[in-house]
Design a protein around this nucleic acid. Sequence first.
DNA 1: TTGAATTTTCAAAACTTTTTGAAAATTAAT
DNA 2: ATTAATTTTCAAAAAGTTTTGAAAATTCAA
Lengths: 168, 168
Amino acid sequence: MKLSEAKKQFISSWGAFGTHWGINKTMAQIHALLMISPDPLTQDDLMEQLSISRGNVNMNIRDLINWGLVDRVIIPGERKEYFTAEKDIWKVATQIIKERKKRELEPMLKLLDQLEDVDGDKKDKNIKQFVDTVSGIKKFGQQADKMLQVMVKADENWFVGALVKFFK
Amino acid sequence: MKLSEAKKQFISSWGAFGTHWGINKTMAQIHALLMISPDPLTQDDLMEQLSISRGNVNMNIRDLINWGLVDRVIIPGERKEYFTAEKDIWKVATQIIKERKKRELEPMLKLLDQLEDVDGDKKDKNIKQFVDTVSGIKKFGQQADKMLQVMVKADENWFVGALVKFFK
DNA sequence: TTGAATTTTCAAAACTTTTTGAAAATTAAT
DNA sequence: ATTAATTTTCAAAAAGTTTTGAAAATTCAA
């Protein structure tokens, strides 16, 4: 397959993949394009290569920067801003895990804590089922939180090495 | 907090949580309500308790059944159909992992395989970056696939026990 | 400073997804 | 077989999200 065709396919399916994970298609496509580009790109490059408007590029780039997945790059002597993406997929993954843990998992665990001590007779089957469900989810979430914490902190090689041994 | 208030909060935040994971709000809310209900519910119960239309309940219940998260229950002597959700959160999680692995991860890995052998000189930096990115993602994805496979097959207690030891 | 290049913003438009509700289909009791 | 209860379907409406593009703001070189 030719590079240009392969690029198109990669960008388009990375975009579709993103939408299953709560990330918008354009953001994922910009990220895909930056990951496969050896050199940093400008907003105009992104507009042109993805056929999207300036405003769209600008907003999605901002989000990607907030997620810690893209960086602004200053090229001396150049007026325009350039952008580049982290290319080590392990770092991309841990960055996403770190952010989602903070944005989603931690608030959920905090809420479950509050919901766990609902008033009333624990013998009532409605209350019992509610509390059992909530505390089951809480325990599971705490376990996941702990595990993700270790992953995020771990050094790539140590972790991958350990995992391979553990799961092989 | 009163049970009715706690239920409302749980349902609403489980719905919001779902939207970050590519699941629609109503589907997640139906699932939440069924998880905290000790007895099976009918479509009418769901319509009433969540204030949504019959068609909406019907379609989302169908999806939940396809995901393997909800089951139809026949109650002898009752005309209506009843629905119940898996309440063991570990089973819920492995079921979701199994499905998403099949629907998303596996097709992505298949595509990456094809993209990896793009034509042209591997010395060209564009080709090199493309191939490096694609194979990096592929390796990572295969690793994840293997790990998830183990999780899904594992028995709850064995796995949780092993994880706790491993990550503590 | 000035002004040209560049980036940012945001209201309106386009697009996508979800929801509704009534009609059609199915089911099961008589 | 008939009928009433229940479930399913799906076109149209509503709601939600993303994209556009032009105006405003910012930046920087001269």
